[in-house]
Design a binder for these strands. Structure first.
Lengths: 228, 228
DNA sequence: CATTGAGTTAACCTAAAGCTAACATGGATT
DNA sequence: AATCCATGTTAGCTTTAGGTTAACTCAATG
């Protein structure tokens, strides 16, 4: 698990909090760094590139808002999740917090158990944000939306059966490239499954039926390719 | 970084959105322009030629769909990525969006960080049009594309039958080198298959037919070589 | 001018892809 | 639980492109 060795930077001016929360996080297997103010936090963040930063809002020297703002400008923290720690009631800080690029906030006082589970969920979320690389592919009059498992062909929206979709999906990752049958089996079926020799053909045929004959070219003895 | 100075045009009729999103994008180093309706957006787009346009669908005066349609007709925006902002649920707008030439869509509400990472990925995608790392071999007026299993000879694209392609492929790996018939059989046919004595000749003949006589030189008693 | 290896041609053969319908499966729906 | 339906797979047949062969011709060499 990546989470097992995830790095967390904890920033608060109260040593008590650093200790208690830090202890609980370490217990969960996180690698914990601490800082007592924003300035210090920035230095450590730059050096350690933590996966998650928990930032108290009210701090001397440099408050959390300002620190967060600066962190968000640091390219090495692109993939870092930042969350604020705020005393209950300071509602305004939360709003300002989102403006400066924070991902979440936690209100104090917080039970360690609750905090830990929040940390977990934040780190999990981060992984779900990363593959946010929009999964839409446009090729002439064909649009493939890998997120929604649907395609739009000649302005008509349609959903394809899974295998067909995956086959199409594969072929269109590199239009023009010839994919060997073996390659196709590996990716679409998985190299442990063994399917008959005509299975690919049948799916190609169905795709041709739906998306037009000429988009899928056969290269005999080799495989198939998608052409615009 | 090119991204550092990329121009983004943000179009929405809600000033709040313009401010929050605009703020976050500026924070990332983008040069941000804003417009409150499609008409205004068109003017700014024409003048500033942004790299990315984020377009709300629902707007007074001129909606995003119409604006997009008009933008796509402007030659100065050929290299511009256009993405829609749509409230979750208005699914139809997405489909219509692709019809009028949008490249992607983003659903509201969206967290600033998510939006920023989406923006990055969209701008990255735009730059990624070129780096097609394929194995292409160029030899004078002959181009051999092993991925696409096709060749281009004198600017004319053609696909060769498998054996011919492989034979050509082999000979061109070392132009000028003489390949013994035995070597050719090993590579193209596989050393277990036994084929008659005239088989190679026939394939050479077909290649000569297609690619010109003089490219393939016979070395009597030995084999063949490819010469430019 | 005989021998040897390569070129040419068209007929032939075959492996690979196309096609169709039947069968299997698993997930919904009632 | 029983049924239904969409998807996926298979078997078996047809079709075809590609590959091979055989038979003959040609050119070079000694």
């Amino acid at each position: 698990m990546k989470d097992a060795k995830a790095k967390v930077l904890l920033v608060d001016d109260e040593p008590d909090i650093l200790e208690i929360v830090g202890y609980n996080l370490k217990n969960e297997g996180y690698q914990v760094f601490t800082a007592e103010n924003g300035e210090e936090a920035l230095k450590i963040a730059k050096k350690k590139k933590p996966d998650l930063i928990i930032l108290d809002v009210m701090m001397p020297v440099m408050d959390g808002i300002e620190a967060c703002e600066k962190m968000r400008k640091m390219p090495e923290l692109d993939d870092t999740v930042i969350t604020f720690l705020t005393a209950r009631g300071e509602d305004y800080s939360m709003i300002a917090g989102f403006d400066v690029g924070a991902d979440d906030y936690i209100t104090k006082p917080v039970k360690p158990r609750v905090l830990v589970s929040k940390v977990k969920s934040l780190l999990r979320r981060r992984e779900n944000v990363a593959p946010e690389t929009s999964n839409i592919l446009k090729l002439g009059n064909l649009v493939i939306d890998r997120d929604q498992y649907k395609i739009i062909y000649k302005k008509e929206e349609m959903i394809l059966p899974r295998k067909e979709f995956e086959l199409l999906s594969l072929l269109t990752t590199k239009p023009g490239k010839v994919f060997k049958r073996e390659e196709i089996l590996d990716v679409v079926w998985g190299n442990e499954v063994i399917v008959g020799g005509r299975t690919i053909d049948v799916h190609i045929r169905k795709l041709r039926e739906k998306l037009g004959d000429d988009s899928f070219k056969t290269v005999k003895g080799v495989g198939y390719k998608y052409v615009k």
